[in-house]
């Protein structure tokens, strides 16, 4: 009205999406589960991007995290244990127009899905991969996962997890053609939002490890981090995750890290005395496989028939 452009009121959205448009069935994780925070953040990022729900596909494997598609109002594919990534890759292969999100967990991705994890990072298809890492198998009730800290008491290792935990950051960083690696905790909403938003904006496979609370089976995994935020190392940089003062006030230990610096990222990931938060690595120019796999979609039936006829003719006698 006052000082605004005269035609402002004419700029009517044909469709405006609210958070409710991205929400599906009522989420049924345990009270206090970190997964709620991730789900709400995904809804917010989608709402702010104003992506049509029908253009969005949430893909998952098996586990607590993998229930996420059921709590989305978008298309979804709740697949097989460890196999979310091949399904997501296939969805993207001929449909680069779809916005693909993958929800997976530490068991689903780093254990049974380890093969697809490695190769999907290398394919670098354009999608967001959120690994909900609570260092435990929750849905099957408290078995050791690859990221369970050494000594953690579980039902499969009642005398303590026998091996040092797998480091998903060094593994992911070590994969050829990796293009986006970030780490965040579920209990800091501004950092979680900005991290997932940055992941969504990246063209390629955005790998985000979300350190996630399981109040039922692995309380001891996150509690020390919550009580001692000085264990965390906040990665700051103008090309990193945008973060306001509220985040910087919580995580006082900070390190200026250029996300294009792969060697620096590997050094940070290897240093297990600190848990890095933020963007470890970003290469916006890494080749994206969906460009290859979706080639030829525009061919007309006439062109296809000509190609088939030419192929048959090459066998003619």
């Amino acid at each position: 009205m006052f000082g605004l452009k005269a035609d402002w009121s004419l700029d009517v959205f044909e469709r405006y999406f609210t958070l409710g448009d991205y929400a599906g069935g009522e989420a049924r994780w345990c009270p206090g589960c970190g997964d709620f925070a991730v789900l709400n953040t995904v809804h917010r990022v989608l709402r702010d991007a104003q992506l049509p729900p029908e253009q969005t596909v949430a893909v998952s494997g098996i586990g607590c995290s993998s229930r996420l598609p059921h709590y989305m109002g978008t298309y979804g594919f709740h697949g097989l244990h460890g196999r979310a990534l091949p399904l997501a890759n296939g969805i993207k292969s001929r449909r680069p127009d779809l916005d693909v999100w993958v929800a997976t967990g530490d068991g689903d991705c780093f254990s049974i899905g380890a093969g697809p994890w490695i190769h999907s990072i290398r394919y670098n298809m354009d999608m967001v991969v959120l690994v909900f890492d609570n260092a435990i198998y929750g849905l099957t009730k408290k078995q050791t996962s690859p990221t369970s800290p050494e000594g953690m008491l579980t039902n499969t290792h009642p005398y303590g997890a026998p091996l040092p935990a797998l480091n998903p950051l060094t593994v992911t960083l070590g994969i050829t053609n990796v293009s986006f690696v970030a780490q965040v905790v579920d209990w800091n909403p501004p950092l979680l939002y900005e991290t997932i938003k940055a992941a969504h904006q990246h063209k390629g496979t955005s790998f985000v490890r979300v350190i996630q609370r399981c109040p039922v089976f692995s309380q001891d995994f996150c509690k020390p981090m919550q009580e001692h935020p000085e264990q965390m190392l906040l990665l700051t940089h103008e090309n990193g995750i945008p973060m306001d003062d509220s985040v910087k006030r919580v995580f006082k230990e900070q390190h200026e890290h250029d996300p294009s610096d792969w060697v620096g990222a590997m050094a940070i990931a290897r240093d297990e005395s600190r848990i890095p938060l933020g963007l470890l690595y970003h290469d916006p120019d890494a080749p994206v496989y969906d460009v290859l796999s979706s080639a030829g979609r525009e061919k007309t039936n006439e062109e296809k028939l000509a190609a088939i006829n030419a192929a048959l003719d090459s066998f003619a006698i």
Binding site: L80, N89, G90, I91, S93, R95
Partner: peptide, 10 residues
């Protein structure tokens, strides 16, 4: 899985 994903997407 890849083939199933592509099929699911149409």
């Amino acid at each position: 899985g890849f083939a199933i994903g592509a099929s699911y997407a149409g």
